[in-house]
Simulated scan of single mutants.
Amino acid sequence: MHLREQTPRRSVAGVCLSGVELGLPIPWNTVSLLLGKRKSGGAMGGRWEIPGGKVEEGESDHVALERELDEEFSLDVSIGPLLTQAGFLHKGREFIVYAYQVMLPADPVRTPEHSRVDWFPLAGSLDLDLVDSDRSLIENLLTTKPVVISAFNQ
């Protein structure tokens, strides 16, 4: 009997950056990144993360990211392009997290999942106690050639 390999589950992250202008390359070394500090408890309690979550069956990445950010911040967001991705293991299951640029209409005011939300310089965020998957995403972003954002979905 052969064990069937499971397809990795999809997860999405909303990379909210300040200091980005449409039509110009993203200056990775000078932008700030929005991170949330998870509330205490659980395996990732007290660690910083990029907002996002798991893609449910039948959802597209964009729909999942819109849902997750609405649940976390009660904000309608605009989704930009895919910036990077990273693989990780969670409870023995393989995941791939896809990081999309997200534009927020305002700073978050409600966050039931986080004890704190704040902006950090992208490179400086690596000094924080980040969840492992998001550390990989940020490392990938810092080594990515500059991306030009021309538009966001409305």
Score class of each variant (00 low, 15 high):
Phe73Asn: 03
Glu21Gly: 03
Leu126Asp: 08
Ala123Cys: 09
Val102Met: 14
Thr30Gly: 04
Asp134Ala: 09
Ser32Pro: 00
Glu68Thr: 05
Gly42Trp: 13
Asp132Phe: 15
Ile26His: 06
His62Met: 07
Leu33Lys: 15
Asp129Ile: 06
Pro51Ile: 04
Arg110Phe: 08
Ser136Pro: 00
Trp28Lys: 13
Gln154Gly: 09
Leu137Arg: 05
Leu142Asn: 07
Gln154His: 10
Gly42Gln: 12
Leu34Lys: 10
Val15Met: 05
Ser11Val: 01
Gly14Lys: 07
Asn29Gln: 15
Ile138Asp: 01
Val97Asn: 06
Gly45Thr: 07
Pro25Gly: 08
Arg135Gly: 13
Arg47Phe: 12
Ile138Trp: 06
Gln6Phe: 01
Pro112Trp: 06
Arg67Gln: 07
Glu21Phe: 02
Glu71Phe: 10
Gly42Tyr: 12
Arg47Thr: 09
Arg67Cys: 06
Asn29Leu: 14
Thr111Gly: 09
Val77Thr: 14
Arg38Gly: 04
Lys145Ala: 14
Pro105Ser: 12
Val109Arg: 14
Trp119Lys: 09
Leu3Cys: 00
Ile96Cys: 11
Gln6Glu: 08
Phe73Ile: 06
Ser78Tyr: 04
Leu17Thr: 10
Asp129Gly: 04
Asp76His: 15
Pro27Arg: 11
Arg47Lys: 15
Arg9Leu: 12
Val12Thr: 08
Leu34Ile: 05
Ser115Thr: 11
Pro81Gly: 12
Ser133Tyr: 02
Asp134Ser: 08
Val102Phe: 14
Gly42Glu: 10
Arg110Cys: 04
Gly19Thr: 00
Leu126Trp: 12
Leu128Ser: 08
Thr7Tyr: 04
Ala99Trp: 04
Leu35Ser: 01
Glu57Leu: 06
Leu65Ala: 03
Gly14Met: 07
Ser150Ile: 09
Trp28Val: 15
Trp48Ile: 06
Gln6His: 02
Ala86Pro: 00
